[in-house]
């Protein structure tokens, strides 16, 4: 029972830290990561289909490195090494470097999602379009991509949910998201399990609502096609 009274006490004092700051920054970071990831991920996916071998190799290397190393390590590099390359960063709060890392990380995964989404479209669709005399570009834009989007969206939704959880690693640099809220309050109260329970419920609520929204979107997409 003390467990629940403790939670009530913590929430009474720190509700803003969890509900406003914590959820706010978690959503902010996730949206930046996914929106940036979708944009730059599309560019990377384009680069992967490019005829320039060097570009292709560079992008593939980037994707492999990002996928093959822990996000926490990438965050350390972003926070401590990026400012050496971009001096402007060192005078900005860590959330900038952290956002850049999350965007790069997400771009790599999204580029793979887009690539496989495009490759999953039957090659015959492209051939039929080209055989009618349409250019590669038109065929891509009006035939292949619209079909690829149907494969891509659900995977992109999963990526969003993964990113929401991955932002927790940014708490190493106290950027303010939910896990940072946990660290702050735990540091003050030493009530670890209670604080963990609170952020656990909040993370679950976030991802649950998100996945419901995504499912609803998917249903609408299916109904239309």
């Amino acid at each position: 029972m003390t467990f629940f009274t403790n939670i009530a006490k913590i929430m009474a004092k720190y509700w803003q830290t969890f509900l406003l700051q914590g959820i706010g920054y978690t959503l902010l970071l996730s949206v930046i990561a996914v929106a940036g990831g979708a944009f730059f991920g599309s560019l990377l996916a384009l680069a992967k289909r490019s005829k320039l071998r060097i570009l292709k190799a560079l992008v593939n290397a980037l994707v492999e490195v990002v996928r093959g190393t822990p996000v926490l390590l990438q965050l350390y590099i972003g926070v401590f090494v990026f400012p050496m390359l971009i001096p402007r960063l060192s005078s900005l709060p860590y959330i900038y470097s952290v956002s850049i890392v999350l965007v790069i990380n997400s771009s790599a995964y999204v580029s793979e999602i887009i690539r496989s989404g495009i490759e999953a479209v039957d090659i015959g669709q492209m051939e039929a379009a080209r055989s009618l005399g349409l250019t590669q570009r038109t065929a891509m834009l009006s035939i292949v991509l619209p079909q690829a989007v149907k494969n891509i969206l659900p995977a992109l939704g999963n990526e969003f949910i993964t990113v929401v959880k991955e932002t927790s690693l940014a708490s190493t640099f106290f950027v303010g998201e939910l896990m940072t809220a946990y660290l702050k309050v735990k540091g003050n109260t030493y009530l670890t399990m209670e604080c963990l329970a609170i952020v656990g419920v909040l993370y679950f609520a976030l991802t649950f609502i998100l996945s419901k929204l995504l499912k609803a979107m998917e249903r609408r997409m299916k109904a239309r096609a």
């Binding site: 004092k13 720190y14 803003q16 830290t17 702050k184 540091g187 003050n188 030493y190």
Partner: peptide
């Protein structure tokens, strides 16, 4: 706390 902590 009390060496280093947050005032929320």
């Amino acid at each position: 706390a009390p060496m280093d902590f947050y005032d929320v």
